[in-house]
Design a binder for these strands. Structure first.
Lengths: 345, 345
DNA sequence: CTGAAAGCGCTTACAG
DNA sequence: CTGAAAGCGCTTACAG
C-alpha cells in the first residue's frame, strides 16, 4: 500500500497541492465546485494527511500533553478519559506523561516532550499543578497550559477546578444536620492543596455551627486505601471515638469502613462515614459511601477546550481560562442520624 | 526562546548536520573526539531533536498505539502504565486510542491513527484483540502489532499472554483441596476469550477430581462489580447454594462478597469466594479476596519490547513474538475450608 | 570517517 | 479564488 500524499490528490483533482490543503483545513476562498471535487478525490483515495508533515511545516503539533503524578489511580483514569474523548472530538491527540517530582531528572522528561513533541498545550493534574518549577517549564517555553484544581491560579496559566471548600462545607453541614458533633476529619497528603481547602471547608462549617473541632480527630492520610485502614485503627481503637468521619477522598473512606467492619462497629448506626470524589471505591462497598461527586472528566474536557480554543492561544492571560465546575453531594448508606452514642466522648 | 536545530549544533561544533545526526542517533563511524565535541555542544545548547522532522524524513514515528476497549478500567490503567514506562525507557511515546466496536465508524479512527500518526506499532488489548476486522486494519497497513491475551495467535501478529486455563485450574484445585464440592463459576462476558479459557480450566479441574459441575451454578457476568452484585443475589438467595464461588475477575468477586455480607453469610466460614486479576478491588475488601495475580503491566511492557525490537520489525512472523508470562495464586482471607454446610445441596 | 545534495509531505508567505 | 516557490528540521542514499 503506497501512501497517498497531497500531491496525489492534487493531481487527480486537477488542482494544486495548496488548494487541497485549503480544502482539508476548511479554509475559505475555494470555489464550492472545486471544493467538492477535491473532497471526492480525498474520499476515493482515502487520503489522510501526514500529521508529521503538517506539524513540521506549521507551528502546531495537534498534540496535547497530560502531565500526571500517578497515572494508575482511578482519578487519573477519569481525567484521562475525559481529556481523550474531547481531544478526539477536536482532532487532537493526547500524550500522557507521568511526572515523578521525587525522582531527580524529571525536568528532563518534561523538557523533552515540550521540545521534541512540540506540544500545543499541557494539562497539569494535581498535585503537581502546584509545583512552581514544573509550571515554569511551560511558561518559559510559552506552552499554553491548564492547571487542574491548583492552589493558586497564575495569570498566564489556565485553570479548571471545583469548589472544594464549599463542597466540604456542605458535607460537614450535612453530618452536623444528622446530629453529629464528634466528627473526625481525615486529611489528604500535605502536597495536595485540594485536601487543604477541604479541611478549611470542614473547619468553617464546624465553626459556623459553633462546634469545637477535636484535634485528636484530625489525622493525615495519603489518599490510599491502606492509609484509611491504618487511620481507622487509630480512630476506632478505644471507646473514645467519633460518631462520624469525613475523609478527604473515597479510597480512604473505604479503608475506614473496612476497619469499622473488622471491629464490628455498625455503619451507619454506630458510625457515619463520608468520602469525597465519587470514585468507584465509594460504590464498591456495603453500605455504599456518601460522598461528593467531583467532575473529574468534565474538568479535563474543559481543559482541552481551553487549550484548543484559538482565542486562549492568542491572548494569554485570558479571562475565560479560569473555570469552576459544579459538584454534588451524593448521599448513600454510610451516613445516618447520630445515635445515642453521640455524646459518648 | 528560539528553538535550537541540528544546524545550530553543527555550526557550533564545526561539523556537518549529518555528523550531528550520527552522534545523536548513536551510529558508528564518528571519531571519538568529534563525538564528544558534538555531545558537548548538544548539552550546552540543550538541543532536542524535533520528533516531527525526524519522523517525516525517516520512516519511523517513534510512536506506539495502545488500542483499548474501555480506557477507564483498572485493567486499562495497569496495562497502560506498564506500556508507558517501557516506552519511556525505549524513547518511544504512547498514544492511547479507545476503540468502541459497537459504535459505527470506529474503523475510521483506527485508520486515521495508523495513517496520519504513522504508528510504528500497536498494542491491542482484550477483548478487541479478538476482532478480526480490527487486526486486519493493522495487517493491511503492515503495522507491527501485538495482541494481549488473544483467543488465537495469528502468525503475523505478536502475542503476549498468561496461562488462563492453567491458572483457573490451579484455583479450582485449591478450592477442591479445601473440601469444596459445590463450586459456582461466574463467567465473564462472551466476547472475552480469556474468560472462556478460565471456564475451561475450571471444568478441567472439576473433571479431574470427578466432581460434576452443577450447571445452575455457572452464570454469566460482564466483569463489572454490579454484575457480581446481581449474580450474588441469584446464587445466594435460597438455602440451595454453593459453598464456594470462583469468579472470572475480582470486580465481580467483590460484588459477590458484598452480597454475601448483605445477606449475613459469613465469608469464608459459610462461603468461599475467589477472584481473578489481583485488582485493587481484591484488596479493598474485608476479608481480602483470594485471586490469581495476572501480570498485566509486565505483559504490556513485553509487548512494547517486541514492537521496538528491530528483529521483530524486520522479520514477521517472528518466533520470539509470542510470549507467555507467569501468574501466581494469591491466597487471602476470602477462601477457607469447607464447613459442615458442604453437603447442604 | 565525513559531508553535500536531495527529499520526506505538508504549510507559509507571497503573487497574480 | 488559485498557484509557484521556499522552507520546516531532520534522514537517506550516495560520494569521497
Amino acid at each position: 500500500m503506497k501512501t497517498v500524499t497531497i500531491k496525489d490528490v492534487a493531481a487527480r483533482a486537477g488542482v494544486s497541492p495548496k488548494t487541497v490543503s485549503r480544502v482539508i483545513n476548511g479554509e475559505d476562498h475555494v470555489r464550492a465546485e472545486i471544493r467538492e471535487a477535491v473532497q471526492r478525490v480525498v474520499a476515493e483515495l482515502d487520503y489522510r494527511p501526514n500529521a508529521f508533515a503538517r506539524s513540521l511545516s506549521s507551528s502546531r503539533s495537534y498534540l496535547l500533553g497530560l502531565f500526571i503524578d500517578d497515572p494508575v489511580s482511578g482519578y487519573a483514569a477519569d481525567v484521562q478519559h475525559g481529556a481523550l474523548i474531547r481531544c478526539r472530538e477536536r482532532s487532537y491527540h493526547l500524550v500522557v506523561e507521568p511526572v515523578d517530582l521525587s525522582r531527580p531528572g524529571w525536568q528532563d522528561h518534561v523538557r523533552d516532550s515540550i521540545a521534541s513533541l512540540r506540544l500545543d498545550g499541557a494539562i497539569i493534574a494535581p498535585p503537581i499543578c502546584d509545583a512552581p518549577e514544573l509550571i515554569d517549564l511551560f511558561r518559559q517555553s510559552a506552552v499554553p497550559h491548564v492547571l487542574m484544581a491548583p492552589s493558586v491560579e497564575p495569570e498566564d496559566s489556565g485553570a479548571v477546578r471545583m469548589d472544594d471548600h464549599g463542597a466540604a462545607r456542605e458535607m460537614t453541614d450535612y453530618l452536623i444536620c444528622l446530629g453529629h458533633r464528634h466528627i473526625a476529619f481525615v486529611q489528604g497528603p500535605e502536597n495536595h492543596s485540594a485536601s487543604i481547602r477541604r479541611e478549611e471547608g470542614f473547619r468553617a462549617a464546624m465553626a459556623t455551627a459553633a462546634i469545637a473541632v477535636d484535634e485528636r480527630f484530625v489525622l493525615r492520610g495519603d489518599f490510599s486505601f491502606r492509609s484509611g485502614l491504618e487511620l481507622g485503627e487509630a480512630l476506632l481503637r478505644g471507646p473514645d471515638r467519633p460518631s462520624a468521619i469525613f475523609a478527604c477522598n473515597d479510597d480512604m473512606a473505604l479503608g475506614l469502613l473496612i476497619t469499622a467492619i473488622k471491629r464490628d462497629i455498625q455503619v451507619p448506626d454506630d458510625l457515619s462515614i463520608a468520602g469525597f470524589d465519587d470514585a468507584a471505591s465509594s460504590r464498591a462497598a456495603w453500605p455504599q459511601i456518601t460522598t461528593i461527586r467531583q467532575p473529574k472528566a468534565e474538568m479535563a474536557a474543559a481543559a482541552v477546550d481551553i487549550l484548543v480554543d484559538p482565542s486562549f492561544r492568542r491572548t494569554i492571560p485570558h479571562p475565560d481560562a479560569h473555570l469552576m465546575l459544579p459538584h454534588a453531594l451524593v448521599v448513600r448508606g454510610s451516613t445516618g442520624r447520630c445515635g445515642t452514642d453521640a455524646d459518648r466522648v
